[in-house]
Design a protein around this nucleic acid. Sequence first.
RNA 1: GGCGCUGUAGCUCAGUUGGUUAGAGCGCCGCCCUGUCACGGCGGAGGUCACGGGUUCGAGCCCCGUCAGCGUCGCCA
Length: 585
Amino acid sequence: MKRRSCGALRASDDGARAELCGWVHRRRDHGGLIFIDLRDRDGITQIVFDPQHTAFGDAEHLRNEDVLRVRGRVRKRPEGTENAKLATGAVEVAVDELEILNRSQVPPFQVNLDENPEESLRLEYRYLDLRRPRMQRNLTIRHRIIKAMRDFFDEHEFIEIETPMLIKGTPEGARDYLVPSRLYPGTFYALPQSPQLLKQICMIAGFGRYMQIARCMRDEDLRSDRQPEFTQLDVEMSFSSQEEVLEVMESCMHFVWKRVLGVELAPFPRMGFAYAMERYGTDKPDLRFGLELARVGDLFASTEFAVFASALSGGGEVVAVRYPGGAALSRREFDALVDEAKHLGAKGMVWVALGSDGAKSSAQRFVGEEHAKSIAQRLGAERGDALLLFADERDAAFAVAGKMRSEVGRRCGLRRNDAFAFCWVTDFPYLEIDEETGKPTPAHHPFTAPAEGEWDLIERDPLRMRAQHYDMVLNGYELGSGSIRIHKPELQRRIFEMLGMSREQVEEQFGFFVRALDYGAPPHGGMALGIDRIAMIACGEENLHEVIAFPKTQTARDLMMDAPSPASEKQLRELHLSVPKKKER
RNA sequence: GGCGCUGUAGCUCAGUUGGUUAGAGCGCCGCCCUGUCACGGCGGAGGUCACGGGUUCGAGCCCCGUCAGCGUCGCCA
């Protein structure tokens, strides 16, 4: 007799004998006839217990989440009782043999419902939460995505190389997770924030095309789209231009979406960083909808409105966003919207409602009919829309307008989770000004090559220098970034020097790497994409918890295992560590 | 570290202006039921209103603090 999954049987199996194993999803006891929905990863099959079989007595005592093995005959359901909602709904299994493999306690929440219990309960009983069809589906999709990626790169002659988890820490970037060394008192390994230098060394080692499904750790605060431990698709290629890297990565995503979701993606639009900031106020634009921003400061060049005038005279800008249908908002709703804008970092917000009886504005005395008309024209706004205006320092005005654009998109239902709008953002600035120190720091990492032909800017005008750096963006999420790397040791040293690192600092932190560049490092570049985020968006989810089997809470705890947990005195002694008592901390 | 939301039965939630005995659906227990699929019917059990303090004649509701989960800003080269 053949063991079948709970999602396998069809009308064509009528009459066959089958064995099914699974969990009791739901029980319908009619007294003289018992139906059980038996569930496994693959689906649900209805099994039926008839009073004339000996199994019936045991079936009366089955409860949700008991684990069963049953044997019986597959039969078409009586006419009119088919269930179109189930893939197996044309048939049922008439059970003649029942083996109860294990009983379950009454679960702390119902596995057979779609609603999410409170997050902490889900996480504490993660094995039950993961049994829910939604989680089984999501983790299966995640598996298929990773499988497709491996297949794609294998076909393109990349090889997967595992890099170590215990490596040397780097003082810059995110906070490292540290592992104390037993053999060398007072020293620590760091867990990788990314295999960046190791994959570059694989290029120097002559592997040509590398990929890895790599675990990475960063000890920073969490978000719905950020876990301290995450998985990335890490790629590096030798002798390749930026264009070639973009092509490989983009066709990988086309391949994955086609194979896993059956979706044919359009070519990814590309835009420069400066363009993205002006049109969307962010370097990770959500292109599921338009509503591009427009600068309108010039329309208020001679305004008496103090808020706008002072922003503009200080070199600032007024940036406008269109809110389709926003004219219907009440004054109270506009007030709430202003509060929301402030929460997003706006100093304030002026709204203009394009009503059927003319324009109404929160700054009525200063924003007239003419202004409204001109702004509406630039935004492509129509009667019935609202216009939202933000005045601030240039970058700040664009940034907050961009956040409100996103919020407007949400309110207007434009952020559909079954739409996939990829894009490339390129031509990033090489340096940015650190707000704390006022000093230039690399906008990305210091192994990035400057844009072609811009090396000389390092002496003349370093802040204008751009990088051969690129981001892949999907639905407003940064999936990841990559760059062409510096392969000339003298140029790499020059960059460290520009960043104000002494010879000794470079030797101490990156000596092994710069030394490697000295031995015939080929030109190379690559990229890393966040697989958790890719899986999340592909599954139509909005939190990484839904696509990670055992995620951490926002306070970086594992509620099922109760980690982190204290170490024993003996362990601490061996690691040459001591922990201050609580009150001393 | 800052700001915000949430915490009431096993679960998901409701709970009016501070007022007598804190409710619903699901789940659970018992009985009945041979075509259900969110089966149905009858009956029942189940509450430290997160925790600690305060205001009040009286607190699930108001105030302060703590804890937890989530969202967000900082942070994530």
